[in-house]
Amino acid sequence: MTILKIELEWCRDSKGYDLVDIPKRGKWIIGKGGPPERYNPFEMSDVPLLAFANAHSEEKLRNFALRYGYLTTRGYSAQGEVQPPVTSVRRFHWDSEGAITGIDQNASVQHLEGESVDEFVAVAKLFKRVLALTSGRLSRSLSGEVENLLLNYGSPNDVSFNFNIDPMRRLHPVILPGSLISGLLVQLAQLAGGSSFKTCQLARCGTLFAAGGRSGLRADAKFCSPAHRVEHNSRTRSKTARKPSA
């Protein structure tokens, strides 16, 4: 399959993001309200798709947000700017159901900005399961989960198609998603089922990584880094040495 270029003008909060515990809503990732840093996440040296697929805990999802920003436009205004967040939840008054019942006079935001950690950790885990497939064919159960994923985040109105002429005067088709999660879904559809994605065999790791090609790792690599290969082999030797001889 031809991999089409993805162009997205996105932004991240220059002051970073906090994990905030909202009553009855769980943990949320909320920007600190710094000036937006604009960039194209699909032109970075690393692969945002892999970074998201490995964001399977609240801290890893926060680290993803620090590098890439929010996944959807819900945390941003219509202009794409980072809204002033609920910086200090102390300025807000919550009831036991997590609803905002009051707000201090000097606070500038009257609604919750940010994204649910539980929601997107679950989505990240699903991305990882799809990318770990050795073929492009989904199981019946996984197919149903992916269909729900597309219903929630894969609106065709959020992705458009265009053409660009590069500096060498060559014509290229490009995909224009309306949000980071839409762009990641495009990458997922283009790259899922390839043999280039592996799961690190070190028991304590389990990171999904790219092998072969320009990844710097052999196509048959079993570990995400040489250090993890050495650690795995060392642990295996230690277990063998502890076994009583017959």
Rank of each mutant, 00 (worst) to 15 (best):
P173D: 01
D95G: 08
P177A: 06
T72W: 04
E119Q: 15
N63T: 04
L150S: 04
R169M: 11
S179H: 05
E115N: 04
V186E: 10
R67Y: 01
R90Q: 14
L149E: 12
M168N: 12
G194C: 03
H93G: 12
M168Y: 06
M168G: 07
S179T: 09
P173H: 02
Q105G: 08
R137H: 10
N157P: 00
R74D: 10
G183P: 02
H172Y: 00
G194Q: 13
L150H: 05
D158Y: 00
L188C: 08
V82M: 09
G98N: 08
F64G: 05
F161I: 11
F197H: 13
G194T: 15
D166M: 02
F163E: 15
S196R: 15
I100S: 11
A78S: 13
L138E: 09
P84T: 06
P84I: 03
N162I: 00
S179M: 00
A124R: 01
A122G: 10
Q187Y: 07
L171Q: 04
F127D: 10
V186D: 04
A192Y: 07
L133K: 13
G178N: 06
S195M: 09
A132W: 01
E119C: 10
L188G: 05
L138N: 08
L176D: 02
K128N: 02
G178K: 03
N162Q: 04
A124D: 02
T101K: 12
D118E: 13
S195T: 15
G69E: 06
Y70K: 12
A132F: 00
G193A: 05
L126W: 05
P177W: 01
G154P: 13
T134V: 10
A65C: 15
G183V: 02
N162S: 15
